[in-house]
Amino acid sequence: MAKTCWSPPSVADSQSERPTPGAGETLLRVSGLTTKYGAISALRDADLHVNTGEVVGLIGPNGAGKTTLLGTIAGLLAPDAGTVVFKGDDITGAPSEQLLRSGLSLVPEHRRIFVDLTVEENLKIGGFTLPKADRPALLDEMAEQFPVLREKWTTPAGYLSGGEAQQLAIGRALMSKPDLLMMDEPSLGLAPLLVDVVFDLIDSLRASGRTILVVEQNATRMLAAADRAYVLRSGEVVAEGSGDELLARSDLFDTFVGG
């Protein structure tokens, strides 16, 4: 996957690309993305795409560049090279507040919920970009989808447990009615039982037709839950395939345990 030379594909190219058979059209296409922190390249020449209706996983060891990739797509980091095309528009380097309005929502690493705000307020702020009239219906929808949250509706979010907080973070991201939901390490720091909850949630979101891009360290679970996945290592995409294909490749797992 890692190429030695890089030529940015034009927007027209990516639009004319045929969609993967059996899936929706290409919603997000990342080409040749390179992001540096000072002198080091945290991400080198990464390519990936997400089709409508897919759950795509991004796996790899700590420090492989997964979070950097997501952050760059979401406009939190500025790329040094490459393009991000979303729904046919080049959104490379656009600020995060603008991306949300175009339908791209991120559940950040460590959840980053507003601990002093109540559960309801957290959800409301998730729907900040929506017309006022749309919010009550969506709030009801979230209350229905996340019964745990409904019970603690007026509790400050700082009092939620890790699993509840993660659901809140996801609910908050869903409040903007995103076309593409991105999650950064949703199982981070959760007890095994709660990890199950998160993956069940991802399954149910897929069933309801959401398009999701998930960065996850829990590779086995992620591959089982994803339609397709990319493997990152040392800032480069080193493998791509369906969940089952990648699960079968034992060589990739040595990447993780470092054998």
């Binding site: 199950d196 993956f199 829990n218 679970r221 089982a224 993780f256």
Partner: peptide
Amino acid sequence: LVQAAYLGTAAT
């Protein structure tokens, strides 16, 4: 146990 922690336990 270490392998499970790193790779994640398979879905039950």
